[in-house]
Design a protein around this nucleic acid. Sequence first.
DNA 1: CTTGACCTTCCAGTCACTGGAAGCCCGATA
DNA 2: TATCGGGCTTCCAGTGACTGGAAGGTCAAG
Lengths: 139, 139
Amino acid sequence: MPDTLHDAGAVTVGEAADAVGLPAKTLRYYEEIGLVVPDRRGNGYRAYRPGEVHRLRFLKRARSLGFSIDDCRVLLSLYGDPGRTSSEVKAIAQQHREAIEHKVAELLSLRDELDRLIDACHGDHRPDCPILDNLAGGR
Amino acid sequence: MPDTLHDAGAVTVGEAADAVGLPAKTLRYYEEIGLVVPDRRGNGYRAYRPGEVHRLRFLKRARSLGFSIDDCRVLLSLYGDPGRTSSEVKAIAQQHREAIEHKVAELLSLRDELDRLIDACHGDHRPDCPILDNLAGGR
DNA sequence: CTTGACCTTCCAGTCACTGGAAGCCCGATA
DNA sequence: TATCGGGCTTCCAGTGACTGGAAGGTCAAG
């Protein structure tokens, strides 16, 4: 576990995972797709430095807000770019917000349609069922 | 295209797809997973009979209501089972409704959180950005 | 020296398709 | 009869974002 002089402050994938609250598998996946690429120790073990752990935390938070991996890639690069503008960041967030809003509208419409079918179905021991009738009727 | 005496009323995958409004690829996929398995003509072509086209329409409608393929499998089997009870059907629909409701709640919570961040961000040419700050701060 | 907990890579599976390649079949035209 | 175009066949791979598992290397402790 040392290499302490060479990899000062660096931690293994398991330690980084515990520190951030993501599975180690996910960290390996993020490396594979080039999101957070740690150094390696002499034995081949990943060595996450504090900056990379920080990026992982950033990623975890962004993912928990529903941003796609591609969005996260852009957000991370903006985060690391002193020449960014806040309008670039805001645009991504707004686009994501609209996508969510759109999906909510879809789901609410589905829910309402299901509610109508569920209300129409007595739900007893008999076989006749307005839900199946609707599915079969296709309309 | 005949075989008319043997496969009366049966249509090819393309014709069935057009009739139902699903891509032919999807019909082949539904056969692969055992949802709707048509006969074959002498030349190997799929032969969808009216009953199978009907099941495909049922599937299309159920999928458009957001039911999973597994749900659809059960719904189809209930549809074809005279001994079913409407309560079985209703239970599936209610479970699906609750899953949708749950997802809506999640998305609305995400949306509200995004709204707060978006409102806090002035969105101009300057680099400082509460959205990035929040992602980086993790809290 | 062995145990056990790590770590490594690679492969497969998830869900419901979708795209594409290679090749067969059929009706219609030249 | 040759061939052309369109539709049919199968099989393989990719999507998003991981997740599970197998086979094997590494390391500190007992």
